[in-house]
Design a protein around this nucleic acid. Sequence first.
RNA 1: GGUCCUGUGGCCGAGCGGCUAGGCUCAGCUCUGCAAAAGCUGCUACUCCGGUUCGAAUCCGGAUGGGACCUCCA
Length: 487
Amino acid sequence: MQALSIYNTLSRKKEEFKALNPPFVGLYVCGPTVYSDVHLGNCRTFISFDLIYRYLLHLGYKVRYVRNITDAGHLEGDRDEGDDKFAKKAKLEQVEPMEIVQKYTVGFHEVLGAFNTLPPSIEPTATGHICEQIEMIKQIMVNGLAYEVNGTVYFDVEKYSSEFNYGQLTNRKLEELLEGSRELNGQDEKKGKLDFALWIAAKPETLMRWPSPWGWGFPGWHIECSAMSRKYLGDTFDIHGGGMDLQATHHTNEIAQSQACYHKTPVNYWMHTNMLTVNGVRMSKSAGNGFLPSELFTGNHPLLDKGYAPMAVRFFMLQTHYRSTLDFSNEALQASEKGFERLMDSYTTLQNLKASNASSENITELQTKCYEAMNDDFNTSILIAHLFEAVRIINSANDLKTNLTQADIDLLKKIYNDFVFSILGLKTEESNQKTDAALAKVIGHMLDMRTRAKTEKNFKLSDEIRDKLIEAGIQIKDTREGSTWKI
RNA sequence: GGUCCUGUGGCCGAGCGGCUAGGCUCAGCUCUGCAAAAGCUGCUACUCCGGUUCGAAUCCGGAUGGGACCUCCA
């Protein structure tokens, strides 16, 4: 079986994954800016990296997964001035900026919890690492690659480029970048048009501010990730991830800051997840075509026909490879919902399967294929295709059309536990055991009555019982061994 | 305008030189008192035009449609 390969944005091809210090793996993912509710597109990225984290754990790596919370310094535009997003929102809602941060951080955790993502090992905040950021900026200045103007510190991109490759992550030359960027106007303090702020001077009205060698101010958006990833994962670490939209600016600047500071390549593998689109257009806050996870769960949004369970949504997202765009539509979501239900029903069937002496299926081969799919840059589309092969085998065995030994059945259970539950992170919906038990008993009695009616050829009564149960959302399956049901 | 990605059957979505995934939908069959569920079978696709090759959805060139980034966004 081939080793795990990962598509590395740096080389633009799949590379065999080699951990820097096995069995340890350092994984850093750019987290959310918590000034408003997370939308579904954000969730897709975090679900993708949750899958990656889970698979690395499954392979036995000791992963330190760091995902930051941006709670300061993220400005509205590219002008490097004024308030950041939190302060702006805080003024609007007449609360403290940290109340905004707290509110949306809690909301973010709730939503990711609903999607069954594992919490990261460390979830550092930008405001909690102001010192580290200042130290890093100081070092970049000592190294001559940043300059101060009126209390604001800028990174000197053109000077950096004479020594390092600034556009390596996007495969662009400096000249091309210069050509494509906006001209400086008279109000600009920075020297070069690609230069970006490391530290921003506070204005009298700025709410969130910290003292620094350059006066009161706040950090630029990019420096937090450089400072925090270095603090917790070291000068060079294994994997850095984030959405594709961060590649050109945020991640490019992160690399520049780290190299400018300590002259080392900060990251071995850069991974970028693709966007979620709605009707072919990227879902984004500014486009206004996004909806909140809560709206998706309840169906309370004009774009939604109905509500969808978090696990059905997670499954929907995992059916597409993380590097492809995923187009959202009710039709696609409903198709996934049904497929997911079939996958989970089959697991229930598996629990009651009777073993044969002989085997007519090669389950070991199926397991190998599952690993091969995941090792090929986390190809969940292929993995899920193989899992449906398992579904077919289980259902056939249940219909006595194929034979499975006890070893086969045990291995199928292991495949489900490993791939469906541990790696894909899917689970059956939560339920209330007490009411479930009572309900099961009641339905059991009704089915007994129906069976009796059927034996007596009283089909009018048996059909009536069935129809009433269907009315209550309970589906009946008649098998050789009697009737089963599910909601 | 610049840089890059992409166009697959009714829908979603893998594959990225030969073996032509998978899910959903639809039709038929088996099972069943009738259903449902499940299984089996069928629908056999790669935007267009050239080229390379014994062979191309897959590589190359061109056309055309869509998208992303270059400006805040995962």
